[in-house]
């Protein structure tokens, strides 16, 4: 039984931790995310959300233009209505804050 366990462990260790292809698909999610976080702090949530959705869907998804634009406009609007208006939880607005929302 122990030998069996050792054998299966050896098999496992022969599998590479990450292949290049997998790394790339993880990075396509991770890199935009790492950019989004500081952007939310500086230019605010709504503009970031719009840019992120628009660029991400356009870049990785190759979706029809109408879908891309619709999702990237509608989603932040919906979030605005739910959080800002209904729940009264203001989301970060960064430097744009005083000019856009009141």
């Amino acid at each position: 039984m122990i030998i069996k366990a050792l054998l299966s462990r050896e098999e496992q260790s022969q599998k590479p931790f990450l292949t290049w292809e997998r790394t790339r698909s993880v990075l396509t999610v991770l890199v935009p995310l790492a950019l989004v976080v500081p952007l939310i702090e500086t230019v605010g949530f709504y503009l970031t959300a719009f840019l992120y959705l628009f660029l991400y869907i356009w870049w990785t998804g190759r979706q029809p233009w109408l879908t891309t634009v619709a999702v990237s406009v509608l989603f932040p609007t919906l979030i605005y209505l739910i959080f800002e208006r209904w729940f009264l939880i203001p989301l970060p607005k960064g430097v744009m804050g005083p000019y856009v929302f009141f």
């Binding site: 999610v29 935009p32 995310l33 989004v36 976080v37 939310i40 949530f45 959300a49 992120y52 959705l53 991400y56 869907i57 990785t60 998804g61 190759r62 979706q63 879908t67 999702v71 989603f75 979030i79 959080f83 989301l91």
Partner: peptide, 13 residues
């Protein structure tokens, strides 16, 4: 590609 950024944004919020 549509779902991932939406889930990400919801998580951040």
């Amino acid at each position: 590609p549509i779902l991932t950024p939406i889930i990400v944004l919801l998580s951040l919020i």
